[in-house]
Amino acid sequence: MTRFRPARALAALLLLVLALVACRREPADLAAVPGDPVGAVQAQVKALRDNDLVRYSRLSLPPELHARSEALWARRQAEAEPVDPEDAREYADMMARLTAPDAEKALMRDLEPKLAKFQAEAAGQWPLMQATASIFLGAAIQANTELSAAEKEHGAAVVEALLAWAQPELFTDRERARRAVAALSRTARELELPTLEQARALPMMPAMEKGGVALAGLKEVARAYDFDLDQSLDQATVELVSSEGDRAQVKVSYPLLGKPVAFEIEMQRVGDGWYSADAIEQTETELAEAGPVPAEAAGVAAPAPEAGNAG
């Protein structure tokens, strides 16, 4: 039996959130507030602040496109290969350890030697490690041909803030680690997904509900290390840069770990709502590549339009 690795628990839950949310590149880019691209973005920010990924999903795409995306989710589930037995075993082992009655104590016992080893290895080498990470991540962002110049600038600002925040003494602090482990354990219990088969079988909207639970847990883990995502969302500001016809450019500014960060989103009006033009294009491309997926064939009903509520 493969030994459970506590450090993989956070990564696994993070991957689960990313898989469930299926977000676009921007964290707050979509909504359905009639005639108001700024309100659309504000509504998206509010949904993330509330950990309401069902609402986030409904605000993410025009109703007809959302229904087709939901149908594609269902079709891919039906066509998916069976769960790999080794993956299923590792997932079940991880969730069992996270939800055990003595989870926090057992996980900290396993984590302690790893923290001690990292503490010893990082001593005196952290500036070099930071510089190396900065060069590598910066090069990766610049080499990404799918990112626009503005997106690359935003990515570079995020990396700069994260590298300035990431210090060895932060991650080797035992009390912080205990709070993070406790948050992971509580989140795993609340998810109630003990097997990988159950997680993969979730329809799209129930998956979003579970994703909201996981997102709240990850925010709590981050707060243990003085990384308050809700504070960034609370202080986010949205302003209209330009507007012409059914297109608008919106700027989002927010503080990240004490550093100001901003990016712009191109918004597109569809019907009564405003949505990220990039998200619409990406979803339409994905659907076209997948082939026809009628919503009625998957038993997915088109969602009712969102009410115009930005907050």
Rank of each mutant, 00 (worst) to 15 (best):
D226K: 03
G311N: 12
A32M: 08
G258A: 03
F171Y: 14
K219N: 15
Q142D: 15
W274V: 04
V38R: 02
A12R: 10
L14N: 11
M108I: 02
A183T: 06
G271D: 12
Q235M: 06
N144G: 02
D29T: 12
P305Q: 02
L18Y: 12
A7W: 08
T237G: 03
L14V: 12
A302T: 14
T283Q: 14
V38C: 11
S242Y: 06
P85N: 07
G124A: 07
Y91G: 09
L14A: 12
E104M: 02
Q231H: 14
L13F: 14
L111C: 09
Q198W: 03
L48R: 07
A248K: 02
E175G: 10
A182E: 09
P305M: 06
E81S: 15
E81F: 10
D246C: 07
L257Q: 01
L72D: 03
E197D: 14
S232A: 15
A157Q: 03
P62Q: 04
P294L: 01
L147R: 03
V252T: 06
P63T: 01
E79L: 15
A310D: 15
A302P: 12
P85W: 04
L256K: 01
Q119E: 15
V238C: 03
M204S: 13
E70F: 11
G35V: 07
V38G: 10
D246E: 14
A123C: 03
P194N: 04
A12Y: 00
L287A: 13
S57C: 12
G212H: 00
S276G: 14
W126S: 11
D102T: 06
D93Y: 00
D226C: 08
L240A: 10
A67H: 07
A214H: 01
Q119P: 00
A28N: 02
